[in-house]
Design a protein around this nucleic acid. Structure first.
Length: 921
RNA sequence: GCCUGGGUGGUGGAACUGGUAGACACGCAGGACUUAAAAUCCUGUGACCCUUAUCGGUCGUGCGGGUUCGAUUCCCGCCCCAGGUACCA
């Protein structure tokens, strides 16, 4: 029979499903191994060719580990809450649960066609109430906990309450919001509401004011993703920054542990580095500057307290809480105007734009704590409210941003660390001798930092402080399609619903839009009240809530009593190998580590790092196309003419575009809001712009794997995706070269067949060459899999098959092992040949991986490249038995080499055995 | 802007620890088989120069420097691209 991949693949996929071949047991004599993929968000566009890249790699690894004798847990599920489904619901009125189910079914079909060895009995969906009741349960634990900085862990809020009852909060060391001090008797005399308000300052899940992208026209908060250049992507309305009370999680309490934990996990350095930088630990001092004419002072955080005598002005974030109260009469209007201009900028814009320097004097002054000089207070949008204290002491001589600000506004620059030339630029290095600095003069930077902190602490106006860039995580979203937060309000105080009332199901609503007064969609739910009388919280959890602990649920996914049974948690323990995109480096991976540490603190887990080893697959990038909307209109201008207008670039679906030319009727049909679009064409055509960026539904550049499977089969797709290049490298999708991989599988098939495609295998002993070829491959494939270099394995398979073909080898002893070697990569063809070879169906998955025998590879000669001055000239085959001097003598006396020597005597001869000989003239 | 990664033939990539740059494929060109096509197989294929051809030479891993007998690999300074930048997932 010819290689009929579609028959073979369907047959074995059905076999695996029917026989539960890959079902993992929660106990076994074999050692355990947990291989996890980052589960997908089931988008409406279906699985795209980028998703399987990591899944194929992890599947190869999982299958390899089974062959190596492990009990492998390899599950899959869906991260099924999220914005796209909600946006689709807003556009069509279709309930997101319906579209999500459709999408999941489609994903499942697509995944099944690729032949993964998932244990589907453990499948989870984060939007399933049976799953999210436990996400809600975890939220309740967060609400019921506080972070004790003495014990460095989360503890029950009941412990805190009893401390308050007995001692007040004087001795409590906690990661908490600001709280006034109170005694035990005061606490006991507080009414319920006061007590609850105080506790909210300590809870790990707490309410706080946070800045959000507010779009007045849409009456809703927008994701950064939905804001383009200060306008909403939907509709093009202006967006501003607004404070809003929202649920937050005190992840910052874990900053130090999240940092330290990185030393204990086997992740790549770049990912660890990104997390370290994200957490951003910095040591310095908090310094209070007394406001002149006010009772308050302004606290700044500085990593360079040594430069305090160079502080010539303070800069506050425009939204700093003191700005309005300290601004003097003359400056009120200017400050207001500046605040408004800052409010329309996103934080990212403010950070990236270093060229435009802007700011405004407030009219207020503070007193320098040591020199007593009058220092002006400015506001400037390069200072962010969310970092440190939202205020900096500006030391223009030794900080480049302060320097630029001072130059621009003509503020004094005082050099306090010798070593630079401040007439040209600031001198930011932490090296040099202090000058112009009173009691710090003559000290070096390090000594000065120590000394100034000592003085500040003695004077009670400052203290040494460790600051983290990591901020608490906002946990509320003004959205419908997310986990309801299991909280109700009584007298405006939040309370948890009883845990026996979980799950708190998402209520039905008439529309998936905010209410007319800008309340989140859940506020539309009719008669939705706890115990029939209390209002529920109407925000929902963010997309990352469910994904922060899903790896635990797989261990015991059907459990209705607990999020997972303790024995299962103990047995499967950490994820041994986690594969996913590096775009999750600081989001998902940090949140999941946070949840893990929290559950560990509460005693539910006996490990506090979720993912032992992490491999980041690169992205299969998409090639996106763009249309250019003229701002404030529904008109779109061709790429080549866009400079003549003020435009916003919007993604056009690549399925509406061919050769970068827009198919206008397809485009109009792609979205209701494009139905009446008008176009400014160039020579009758609409040219789209393009960019290589990640493949995602939101970028409308998705390519599906289905047609590739129909044409070439899943085994070809699997091998081709691996063949594309190193797993961790990003690359744009293209199908050049898929033919070669497919041809390889056909050749592989032919090794087991005669010219007429009859299965034909030879029982005789193989040749030495055939053994050599096989064992070269065994060594290579094993090494490659262990270091996740799957692309090089594919090449090695090709080389081996080419060699065996040349040798006309069809010996069972070789070909049996070859099937096993290939099976993790191309499991369907391998199963079929395994069956043809006469072995029992399904046993391939758990047979033993071939053992490498080095004796087949021993060489007695090596063809040495001979270099003259580092440039390779010729090759000489020389016995590997010979030692350095004998080889050199042989080489120098060789006629071919003599030609290059031109009678000269070499200055030096470099000899590296088995590698190279270099003659230096 | 900041953090992280990447840049090698026409294309995807290989070179694992500083040791023959371009393995393995795709594409292209030529050939075999075929009435023809598909499929399959064979040969060639980094650029430039010399040569009738061989033989041979020079250059070449984003750009500019450096270390080294030897650099795609290490160091310094740039350029470009991608991911993240706290409400996309």
């Amino acid at each position: 029979m010819d290689y009929k991949f579609s028959e073979i693949e369907g047959k074995w996929q059905a076999f695996w499903a029917k026989n539960g071949t890959f079902k993992a047991e929660n106990s076994s004599n074999k050692p355990k191994y947990y291989v996890l993929d980052m589960f997908p968000y089931p988008s409406g566009a279906g699985l795209h060719v980028g998703h399987p890249l990591g899944y194929i790699a992890s599947d190869i690894f999982a299958r390899y580990k089974r062959l190596k004798g492990f009990n492998v847990l390899h599950p899959m599920g869906y991260d099924s809450f999220g914005l796209p489904a909600e946006q689709y619901a807003i556009q069509t009125g279709q309930h997101p649960a319906i579209t999500t189910t459709q999408n999941i079914n489609r994903y499942r079909e697509q995944l099944d066609r690729i032949g993964f060895s998932f244990d589907w009995s453990r499948e989870i969906k984060t939007s399933d109430p049976n799953y999210y009741r436990w996400t809600q349960w975890i939220f309740q634990q967060l609400f019921n906990s506080w972070y004790n900085t003495n014990s460095q862990k989360a503890e029950s809020i009941d412990i805190l309450i009893s401390i308050f009852q007995n001692e007040g909060n004087h001795g409590v060391k906690a990661c908490a919001s600001e709280s006034d001090e109170f005694t035990a008797s005061q606490w006991n005399s507080f009414d319920e509401a006061t007590q609850q308000k105080i506790l909210l300052n300590y809870r790990i899940a707490y309410l706080a004011d946070s800045w959000v992208n507010w779009c007045p026209a849409l009456g809703t908060v927008l994701a950064n993703d939905e804001v383009k250049d200060g306008y909403s992507e939907r509709g093009g309305h202006p967006v501003e920054q607004k404070l809003m009370k929202q649920w937050s999680l005190r992840i910052a309490a874990y900053a130090d542990r999240l940092l330290q934990g990185l030393d204990l996990v086997d992740w790549t350095d770049p990912i660890k580095e990104m997390q370290r930088n994200w957490i951003g630990k910095s040591e310095g001092a908090a310094i209070a500057f007394q406001l002149l004419g006010h009772s308050e002072n302004i606290t700044v955080f500085s990593t360079r307290p040594d430069t305090i005598f160079g502080a010539t002005f303070l800069v506050l974030a425009p939204e700093h809480e003191l700005v309005n109260s300290i601004t003097t009469q003359n400056y009120i209007e200017a400050v207001k105007a500046y605040q408004q201009s800052a409010a329309v900028k996103s934080e990212r814009d403010r950070m990236s734009d270093v060229k435009t320097i802007s700011g405004q004097f407030t009219g207020a002054y503070v007193q320098h704590p040591f020199s007593n000089e009058k220092i002006p207070v400015w506001i400037g949008d390069y200072v962010l409210a969310s970092y440190g204290t939202g205020a900096v002491m500006a030391v223009p001589a030794h900080d480049s941003r302060d320097y630029a600000f001072a130059k621009h506004f003509n503020l004094p620059i005082v050099e306090v660390v010798a070593g630079g030339d401040i007439s040209i630029a600031s001198y930011d290095a932490k090296e040099g001798t202090m000058i112009n600095s009173d009691f710090l003069n003559g000290l070096n930077v390090k000594e000065a930092i120590r000394k100034v902190i000592e003085k500040l602490e003695a004077a009670g106006i400052g203290k040494g402080k460790v600051n983290f860039r990591l901020r608490d995580a906002i946990f509320g979203r003004q959205r419908y399609w997310g986990e309801p937060i299991p909280v109700y309000y009584k007298n405006e105080i939040p309370y948890l619903i009883a845990s026996e009332d979980l799950p708190l199901n998402l209520p039905e609503v008439d529309k998936f839009l905010p209410t007319e007064d800008g309340e989140p969609p859940l506020a539309r739910a009719k008669d939705w009240k706890y115990k029939g009388q209390y209002n529920y919280e109407t925000t929902t959890m963010p997309g990352w809530a469910g994904s922060s602990w899903y790896y635990l649920r797989y261990m015991d996914s059907q459990n209705e009593q607990e999020f997972a049974n303790a024995d299962s948690l103990k047995y499967w323990n950490q994820v041994d190998l986690y594969i996913g995109g590096s775009e999750h480096a600081t989001g998902h991976l940090l949140y999941a580590r946070f949840f893990c540490k929290f559950l560990f603190d509460l005693g539910y887990l006996n490990f506090d790092e979720p993912f032992k080893k992490l491999i980041n697959q690169g992205m299969i990038q998409g090639r996106s196309n763009f249309v250019y909307r003229i701002n404030g209109t529904n008109q779109y201008v061709s790429y080549d003419l866009k400079e003549q207008y003020q435009t916003t670039a919007l993604h056009a679906d690549v399925n509406c575009v061919e050769n970068d030319q827009l198919n206008i009727s397809k485009f109009k049909a792609s979205f209701p809001e494009y139905a009446n679009a008008e176009f400014v064409l160039s020579a009758g055509k609409y040219h789209c712009g393009f960019e290589v960026e990640k493949m995602s539904k939101s970028k409308y550049n998705v390519v599906n794997p289905d047609d590739i499977i129909s044409r070439y089969g899943a085994d070809t797709l699997r091998m081709y995706e691996m063949f594309l290049g190193p797993l961790e490298q990003s690359k744009p999708w293209n199908t050049n070269g898929i033919e070669g991989v497919h041809k390889f599988l056909r050749k592989f098939w032919k090794l087991y067949h005669d010219e007429q495609f009859n299965f034909s295998i030879n029982e005789a002993a193989p040749s030495k060459e055939a053994y050599k070829s096989l064992h070269k491959l065994i060594k290579k494939v094993q090494e490659d899999i262990e270091r996740f270099s799957f692309n090089t394995s594919v090449s090695s398979f090709m080389i081996c098959v080419n060699e065996l073909q040349d040798l006309k080898c069809n010996n069972r002893a070789i070909l049996k092992e070859l099937v096993v070697l290939l099976s993790p990569y191309a499991p369907h063809i391998a199963e079929e040949l395994w069956a043809l070879l006469g072995y029992e169906n399904g046993t391939l998955s758990t047979t033993a991986f071939p053992t490498f025998d080095p004796s087949y590879l021993v060489e007695d000669e090596f063809s040495y490249p001979i270099s003259i001055n580092g440039k390779t000239k010729i090759n000489l085959a020389i016995s590997l038995q010979l030692e350095q001097q004998a080889v050199i003598d042989l080489v120098l006396s060789s006629e071919d080499v003599q030609k290059y020597l031109e009678g000269k005597t070499p200055k030096k001869v470099i000899f590296v055995k088995g590698k190279i000989i270099n003659i230096v003239l």
